[in-house]
Each structure stands twice: as C-alpha cells, then as structure tokens.
Design a protein around this nucleic acid. Structure first.
Lengths: 192, 192
DNA sequence: AAATTCAATTGATTTACATCAACCCGTTAA
DNA sequence: TTAACGGGTTGATGTAAATCAATTGAATTT
C-alpha cells in the first residue's frame, strides 16, 4: 500500500525504519471508483492526497459551465487544492477519478504534526514544491507564448504518457482548447 | 540593507540573534540600474534573489522575438529562474530591472549550506514555495478559463499595485495580450 | 530646446480558434 | 438488440484578439 509513496520520499530524503512506521501512521488509505469525487466545488479540501494507483484529475468549472483541467495525477503524484487545504477556505475546484484509484491521504493537522515530528519531511516537501513550481511555470509559459498547435506538440514531446493515458477531450481542456480544435490539430499533424 | 528580508522571514519563522548573523553571512548585496540585466537567456541563473528595493521582471522571448512576462518582483519578493538555479542548466529567461533595485543574492552552495545550518529555513522556503504554487495555479486558471477583458478585471481586483507601478505594455504581456488589445479593453471599461 | 527613443492610442484588416450542428463508433446498460 | 452515452471527427459559420500601420504624447538623451 505504501510502496510508491515510500519510494518517492526515499528518492529525495533518508528515512530510518522508525521514521517509516511513524510516517505511515499519519496517512489514511482510500479507494476511489472511476468518476467518483474526492473534492467538489464548495467543499474544503481536507486532504493532501498521494496516488498509489490509478488516475485523478482536478478541474475548474467556469460561469458558462465549461470545465478547465488544472492538473492530472497518477502513480507517484500528489494531488490537492493546495490553497483550500492550507487555508481552510472552500475550494473552487473539483477532483475526481478518471480511473479507479488508491490514495494515501493526510489531513492538515496530521501534515503539520508530521513536519514537526519528522523534520526531514520539511525538506521533502520543500523539494516537492520546488519541482511543482518549475512545472507550473513551464506550463504557464507554454499557454502564454505558443499557438495551439505548438502547445500540443510541446506536450507530446514533454509528456507522451499523458497523451496515451488521458482522453483527448481532457487533454484539449488541459491545453486550453476545445476538443474540436485539438482533433483538427492532430489530423493536420498526422497528415504532414 | 537586510530589513525587508528579515521582516519577511520572521513573519513565517522565528530566528535567534545568532541565526540572524549567520543568515546574513550567506547573502551578497547587489545594486542594479534600470534596464540592467541580472540574468540573460543562455546563462545559468547563479542566484536566488530577494528584492530589498526596486522592481524586477523575468520574461521569455519566443521564436518570433516577442517578449512574454513571467513574473514581476518588488520589495519583499524573491526572483530567480528556479529551474536553472537548482539544476545548473542554462536559462531560457531574462531578468532585468524595471526600476533601480537593491538585491540580496544567494548562490546554490550557500543556499544548501544555509538550509543545513539553519534548518528553520527549510520551513521558511517550504511555506514560501507553497504560496508560490497557489499563486501560479491561480494565474494559470485565469489564463485558461477567462477572456482577455475578464483577465484584466481580475488582475485589477487582485493586484491593484501592479497596475499602478508597472507599464501597461508589460501588463499586457503578463496577461498574454498585445498592448493594442489591452488599450482597447481599458478604453471600453472606462467608458462603461 | 531639439532630437531621439519609448509608450499608448486608434483604425482597418486578418486569422486562429470557438461555436453550432450533424454524424460515427465503441461501450455500457436497460 | 436496441437504446443511451461518452468520445472523437468533420463541416459551416462567427468572433475575439492579433496584426499591420499611422499618430500622438511622454520621457530621455544630446
């Protein structure tokens, strides 16, 4: 159950055997069926979630009812509305499962306790957040600087796994496009 | 010289008098004139920079020579190409001064030494990076989900200081717009 | 104070992408 | 076995924002 999480942490920092047991005690395991919500707009995001298995998406629904994909997370990724989780304010976002999933979840009180009792986890999360900033920045540059076609090509180059695993209409939304536009772009790229 | 930085850190964590002296020793002060580069595309970002005074911008230049503003930083903000700084790879970005500036800079070796010698700074940077993720996520949602006019209105509401202090053509670029489009949006909003 | 550069505005035109609508295919389900 | 649904494609049309171009005004430099 904790295999993926422990591997992920031990890539970045060192844990003793005692640390591992203590660490595990802060988490709650949870299984999700495909299409099942774990966070809905208007609720507070009570957990930081690590994906042991499966695939999640976080998305925002705008005034016109259109969905905008913020993030995907599969094995080895964390997922949460960071702002809602840390502040306790209600979330603007939804999180649900694209594929059946197994999660390890931690509450804010447990997260804070964990950081105090296992100071090495401050380092783990600092590094994790660092990397997160880098990838968010990249994505932002891409959306601001490039055309739809270039954005898609860059995504294929940078994250081919995403293209394979995630339905095309969700990829379109992630790129800030309609499904029709992405379909036409792909057609054009295949032909040339 | 260290007033703004120390206040910023002590908002988030507690430093002893000894800590403060040690902390200061890791930083290099630097003054920048308006228009002066501190990072150019193709160079490695050697420093994490804290702005004590003045105003900086980080931007990306695309294939067609167009500039895209990634971030602004004034008193109390950190600035760097995080990826280049941490990885040592060359940067795709430029950083220069919009107004004369005074910086406190730290190298990667000193950054790492600081985190080891002052573990409380792990916490400070974890919190800093957390907040950074939240604001990057917000900006991304805005660019993906809203029209040009709505994006501008949301920026005015969220960061009125930015509108006052930063030239309009740079704001346009930050929003992913041409200066002409932003000018027309403003005209329309003033009239109504 | 003249000259040069930089920033903002306005108008005319173009274009990338969205929207609307119909249709197809494969899966799930009644 | 026939609906019903989700996901993808294709075509016709609309529109928000980009591009191109000219003008004015501010700010720097000489």
């Amino acid at each position: 159950m904790f295999n993926v999480l422990l591997a992920h942490i031990q890539e970045k920092v060192t844990l003793s055997v005692g640390d591992v047991d203590l660490l595990k005690s802060f988490f709650i395991p949870k299984k999700l069926r495909k299409r099942q919500y774990i966070l809905q707009e208007g609720d507070v995001c009570k957990y930081l979630m690590f994906v042991e298995k499966g695939l999640l998406r976080m998305y925002h629904v705008d005034d016109k009812g259109a969905e905008h994909m913020i993030q995907f997370a599969w094995e080895g990724w964390w997922m949460a509305d960071t702002y809602s989780f840390l502040s306790g304010d209600i979330s603007q976002y939804n999180i649900d499962a694209i594929e059946d999933a197994e999660l390890l979840m931690i509450t804010l009180p447990n997260f804070e306790a964990m950081l105090l009792q296992l100071p090495v986890m401050e380092r783990y999360f600092r590094i994790l957040f660092q990397n997160n900033i880098i990838s968010k920045e990249r994505r932002l540059i891409n959306t601001i600087s490039y055309s739809a076609e270039e954005r898609y090509k860059r995504l294929v180059a940078a994250h081919p796994e995403m293209i394979q695993r995630i339905p095309q209409n969700l990829i379109a939304s992630y790129l800030g496009l309609t499904p029709e536009t992405l379909s036409r772009i792909r057609k054009k790229l295949i032909q040339s």
